[in-house]
Write a protein that binds this DNA or RNA. Structure first.
Lengths: 222, 222
DNA sequence: ACATGTGAAAAAATTCACAGCA
DNA sequence: TGCTGTGAATTTTTTCACATGT
């Protein structure tokens, strides 16, 4: 059982720094946009410029995983998109359980961006009786009591926690007991997981705090 | 005009790495919890253990900003909370504009964690006529056309963007034109800002992608 | 000419380890 | 004894610069 505040920590996976994986997701996002606009190839310099990175950084990041470029040409967008999706694991379809159907939970249920990247919310859970049995955004809402049962039965691999902070650890424990492999925690609290389960934490207030700091300490870059 | 994907980049502010500032927010969150439980002092080792960091890292992070500890004792929670809030700038009250009242926008309007850290959503904006004039969660919803006017008049300093990706850059430009100082962008797209305006990006799909990668490449730590 | 991939160099972040204070 | 603050050592990450391929 190891405390893991989430993305903030630079813990590695397979020798690949977390920061590299985050940039990989950003590359993918840009590439998909370029591809949609009909652009066929892009150089490391162009891709980096879109995101504020150097060309060398783009190449070094990709070099962790193989050779994807064509000297003199750059990267073919469609090709690199496929490669990055394979690396990130978003070439498969993931089933996700959502626990907590408050304001944030409902927003997550309706978020179109998940579907687009291969994530499907396969079941939602809440403790409040009046929500149970309904279907929100096409997703069935179950009693939290049935969490283990449904997660197992539907072969759900990932979890998102959107319950109030005091319940987050308990929910995490139950998701783990149900055999889940990774969790995104939106509750503003640190949770501990056995180290074989992956965790990313998202704290909305912390994002604003980062902006607050940047504004107050604005002397150099912004 | 400089592209800034957000928190993922380790760009510095005042010589302080972004990663340090993120950990500062995590320290604050733990300290507030400890304080609430009536715990008066905490050592760097204890605080670090709660978050999965080393004692040295906690001390080095704080050392960027001054001396806050008491040899032989540790840190007094109340004292360090005050210090960290001053550093982060959350000792003041911030007024925030929210643009985009879809699912996510509504969730942000109802999010209690902002208030708790000194952030108040002072006005909300949407382009859809049927939402305008309403009050949601006690926050007035205005026509997007009035963005500059209201932001200026209410002296709003920060913005949150929760509109669809294609509109995000335009909204950002208008927030900047209205004199805003920092933006949290929830739209899944990279936006460019003049460098004197701070930016943090939050992409919900990317958070799941990070988990996906971690699950697929699980060999070492999780 | 153009752009990748990659060793080598540089810079940055983390950890070590200990002097000094309560 | 317990714990901070901090130089020094180490490790990690980024940048440089160039040989190689198209």
């Amino acid at each position: 059982m190891v405390p893991s505040p989430g993305k903030s920590v630079s813990s590695t996976q397979n020798g690949v720094p977390r920061a590299v994986v985050t940039r990989l997701s950003l590359y993918l996002r840009e590439l998909q946009q370029l591809h949609q606009r009909g652009i066929e190839t892009v150089s490391s310099g162009q891709l980096g410029k879109l995101l504020g990175f150097t060309d060398a950084q783009v190449r070094k990041d990709l070099a962790h995983f193989g050779q994807f470029g064509h000297p003199g040409i750059g990267y073919r967008c469609a090709e690199l998109i496929d490669a990055v999706r394979r690396i990130l694991g978003t070439d498969r379809n993931w089933s996700v359980a959502l626990v907590g159907i408050g304001n944030l939970g409902r927003a997550l249920l309706g978020y179109r961006g998940f579907q687009r990247q291969g994530f499907r919310i396969a079941a939602a859970f809440d403790a409040q009786l009046e929500k149970i049995g309904k279907s929100i955004e096409g997703v069935e809402v179950f009693s939290a009591e049935r969490l283990e049962e449904i997660v197992r039965h539907r072969d759900i691999q990932l979890g998102m926690i959107a319950v109030p902070a005091p319940q987050a650890q308990q929910v995490a424990d139950r998701l783990v007991a149900a055999g889940i492999q990774g969790i995104v925690n939106f509750a503003p609290v640190t949770i501990s997981l056995p180290e074989q389960v992956s965790l990313v934490g998202v704290d909305l207030a912390i994002e604003l705090e980062q902006i607050s700091f940047a504004v107050v300490n604005r002397n150099g870059n912004g």
